Simulated scan of single mutants.
Amino acid sequence: MDKKNALRAGALAAGTTLMMLLLSSPASALARDDGDDPGSGLNVIETLGLFVFAPIVLYLVIAGLVMVGDKTHKKKDPTSSNIATKAEAKSEVKA
């Protein structure tokens, strides 16, 4: 029963998507509108810098800040990773 419902849902989704694609009008990217004033294009270096290198640098900066914040948290909180104290407490309970 579940396989039949899944097949029906998939067919409905595919049919809906196909109808939306067939009935939609093409994007009029080549026709200029009144008041349209596109700027000059980007060269290869500017494009790579904007869409490749800038996100990588931003990711590394955020990751570095998270790592620095995580290290300072471990130094301030002595009970979070104090395994020796937990082991001593267990041995005292047994004795």
Rank of each mutant, 00 (worst) to 15 (best):
D33M: 13
T85Q: 15
A11V: 05
E92F: 01
A54C: 05
I62D: 10
A9V: 07
D34M: 04
V68I: 15
E46F: 02
L42Y: 01
K71H: 07
A6T: 05
L42W: 06
S25E: 07
E88Q: 14
A87F: 04
A89W: 02
P26C: 13
T79A: 15
T72W: 11
I45Q: 09
S81C: 06
L42I: 06
F51L: 11
K76S: 14
K94G: 05
G64Y: 03
V68D: 06
M20P: 01
K86T: 04
A14G: 02
S91Y: 06
E88W: 04
T79L: 13
D37Y: 00
L42K: 10
V61A: 09
A29R: 08
K90M: 12
G39D: 04
L18H: 00
M1S: 09
A29H: 04
A14F: 00
D2N: 01
G39S: 01
L60Y: 05
Y59A: 11
K71S: 11
M20V: 08
D2G: 12
F53N: 02
M20S: 12
P26G: 15
S40E: 07
T47N: 09
K71G: 08
T85F: 06
Y59T: 11
P26H: 08
S80G: 11
G41K: 06
R32A: 14
